[in-house]
C-alpha cells in the first residue's frame, strides 16, 4: 500500500555537511556508477554523445552564491538527493503501489515492476529527488544503496551508500536518526542540522549542516574588487618616499 507506516523502527538517512562539501561531484558520479549496475533498471542517458545529453541521476550537486548582509559573498556547494521523508508525499500520491516507505528502516523505494511511469510522484516531491528514466519508462530515485548497506558479500567499510563511501571531503554521513546516540544524530544536535523546505510538511530524515560562519571575514563588498582597501594608507621606506615624490608631481 502507498499509505505511510505510522513509525519506522529505524530512520536511516544522510547528513550533508555544507561546510565541508567542495563541489567535486564525486558523490553524484559514484551514485550513477553504483546504481547503473544495481537495484532496478540502469540509470540511462539519452543522446549521450549528442548536442543535448540528458540522463537519469539520483544525486545532483548545485552551487550557490550566498551574500550575507555585512560580509563578502561565498560559494556553497549543495548536493541534492532523496531525503527519505517521514511524511513522504511521493508515496501517498502513487496510484499503483509502486512507491513505498519501508517500516523497518524508513527507506523510500520504487518497485519498478509496478511503476507505470505517470510521473505524479516527481510532481509531489518538492526536492526534485525523483527522475523518470526515459529508457526504462519507470521512476528512479535514491535507494540509500539498499543493496550495499545490508550486503554481507562486501567488506564492512563498504556497507554505506556509495556517495558516502566516495566523498573525499567527508561531507556526507550515513546513519540511524532514530537512535539519539548515533553519530549522525549527535552531529545534527551539535551543529543545528536543518530540514529543507520545512513548510512543505514532509519531515525529511536527511539533514543539512550549514557552513560555519567565517572568522576574520573581509569587509563587505561584491567579489574581489576591493583589494585596495587592504593596502596600508601610508607606506613607509623606499615605497613611502616614491609615493610622496609621485604625489608631488601629481
Amino acid at each position: 500500500m502507498t499509505t505511510l507506516p505510522q513509525t519506522t523502527n529505524r530512520k536511516l538517512g544522510l547528513v550533508i555537511d555544507l561546510d565541508v562539501c567542495v563541489g567535486c561531484h564525486a558523490c553524484a558520479v559514484a551514485c550513477k556508477e553504483w546504481n547503473t549496475g544495481a537495484y532496478g533498471a540502469p540509470l540511462s542517458d539519452m543522446d549521450a554523445y549528442g548536442a543535448e545529453p540528458s540522463g537519469t541521476w539520483l544525486n545532483r550537486v548545485h552551487s550557490y552564491e550566498v551574500k550575507p548582509e555585512d560580509k563578502p559573498a561565498q560559494i556553497v556547494h549543495f548536493p541534492r538527493s532523496c531525503l527519505h521523508c517521514e511524511d513522504a508525499p511521493c508515496v501517498t500520491v502513487c496510484p499503483t503501489g509502486a512507491s513505498y516507505k519501508r517500516s523497518e528502516d524508513g527507506i523510500v523505494l520504487v518497485n519498478e515492476d509496478r511503476c507505470m511511469g505517470c510521473g505524479l510522484c516527481a510532481w509531489a516531491c518538492p526536492y526534485g529527488a525523483r527522475e523518470m528514466d526515459m529508457d526504462a519508462g519507470v521512476m528512479k530515485k535514491c535507494t540509500l544503496c539498499v543493496d550495499r548497506i545490508y550486503n554481507d558479500h562486501i567488506p564492512q567499510e563498504d556497507r554505506v551508500p556509495s556517495c558516502v563511501r566516495t566523498c573525499p571531503a567527508n561531507a556526507r554521513h550515513f546513519g540511524d536518526f532514530a537512535d539519539p546516540d548515533s553519530a549522525v544524530s549527535r552531529m545534527v544536535a551539535e551543529r543545528g542540522g536543518y530540514d529543507l523546505m520545512p513548510e512543505q510538511g514532509t519531515r525529511p530524515v536527511n539533514k543539512y549542516l550549514q557552513p560555519r560562519p567565517k572568522v576574520d571575514a573581509m569587509p563587505a563588498g561584491e567579489g574581489c574588487g576591493k583589494h585596495d582597501a587592504h593596502a596600508p594608507a601610508t607606506p613607509g621606506g623606499l615605497l613611502g618616499w616614491l609615493d610622496r615624490a609621485l604625489a608631488a608631481l601629481d
Binding site: L18, H62, Y64, V66, K67, P68, V76, F78, L196, Q210
Partner: peptide, 13 residues
C-alpha cells in the same frame, strides 16, 4: 528556504 541558506544571506544560483 529550498537550500536553507537564506538564513545566512541572499542566495543566488
Amino acid at each position: 528556504e529550498a537550500t536553507g541558506l537564506g538564513r545566512i544571506g541572499r542566495v543566488r544560483a
